[in-house]
């Protein structure tokens, strides 16, 4: 069958090509520009995956509506309801869901289905990929929080602070909390061995942390030893930081130590951010699990 097929082979000279230009190795401008391109792409992909939105985006919303509707009692001697504690704490859940859970699962799936190896064979700087992830998670997180605050204010007596101070606190708690959870999500994506196991592997630690860190069960109902255990992980501190903003000074007596310990919140979240980044740099795999 090959008789009538003529192919350009060794004998045929290829048309001349322009000589390849020389490029500098490090191009921060290019990485940033492509990082923004990828941010747009990642955000678009996120909002088109209906299952992903249902799974990642709405878990905090659903839990807020259910839990804050069931538990409505007022703390004795305080102008604070359990609903309000939920509304504040579940912001932590929302942040962790859109960053840790979302990235942990989606990057594992991307790796398993060949998306990462496809990207790594292009001249896209690897940092652009991470900028894209961080950027899209930031956008999704802002929307997530706006929805949670909207529901909290509308239905569960959550009060938005009127002074500037708590909002500044909100910004750094949000940024540090999101950054630490994002780094941990990227690092955790290397744990699942396949796309199929990713959801289970990532969701288990996510859910366990929700229960022991004062998100799904108010911190006031948790035994001290469990709160001390959860103090190792960032979620407890993120929820605590959020409560300091939305429950006010009066409710600080409900905390384990009688105060919000914002200094420690900052310290723990910053440590997890740095530690998570180091973990990512050391363990991130572009190759799938079949490539040795």
């Amino acid at each position: 069958m090959s008789e009538n097929v003529t192919l350009p082979s060794v004998t045929e000279e290829p048309p001349p090509r322009p000589a390849p230009a020389r490029f500098a190795r490090a191009e921060p401008g290019r990485a940033l520009r492509l990082g923004l391109v990828r941010t747009g792409l990642e955000t678009r992909m996120f909002f088109r995956e209906k299952d992903q939105i249902a799974f990642v985006f709405s878990i905090a919303v659903v839990m807020l509506v259910i839990l804050a509707s069931i538990f409505t009692t007022r703390y004795r001697g305080l102008d604070v309801t359990v609903s309000q504690v939920y509304a504040a704490g579940l912001i932590g859940t929302g942040i962790m869901a859109v960053s840790f859970q979302n990235l942990g699962i989606s990057i594992a799936v991307e790796r398993d289905l060949g998306g990462l190896r496809r990207l790594v064979s292009t001249p896209m700087p690897p940092s652009a990929y991470f900028i894209g992830k961080v950027g899209s998670v930031f956008i999704v997180a802002v929307i997530q929080i706006a929805i949670l605050l909207g529901i909290g204010v509308a239905f569960f007596d959550l009060e938005l602070p009127s002074a500037i101070g708590p909002w500044l606190t909100f910004i750094w708690v949000f940024v540090l909390g999101l950054a630490s959870m994002t780094m941990l999500g990227i690092a955790a994506s290397s744990v699942p061995r396949s796309a199929r196991s990713a959801t289970a592997v990532i969701t288990l630690p996510f859910v366990v942390l929700q229960f022991i860190s004062g998100a799904f069960i108010p911190h006031t109902d948790l035994p001290d030893w469990l709160l001390n255990l959860s103090a190792v992980f960032p979620l407890k501190w993120l929820c605590q930081g959020m409560r300091s903003i939305f429950l006010g000074e009066e409710a600080a007596v409900l905390e384990l130590t009688g105060g919000y310990e914002l200094g420690r919140v900052a310290l723990v979240l910053a440590a997890w951010t740095v530690g998570g980044l180091v973990l990512c740099l050391l363990t991130f795999r572009w190759k799938d699990n079949r490539t040795k």
Binding site: L113, G114, G115, R118
Partner: peptide, 18 residues
């Protein structure tokens, strides 16, 4: 270097990730 990848193309199987 990264710029070398400008000159190669790889046809991977399936675009199941997107």
């Amino acid at each position: 270097p990264n710029s070398w990848r400008d000159r190669i193309g790889v046809v991977w199987q399936s675009t199941a990730d997107t």
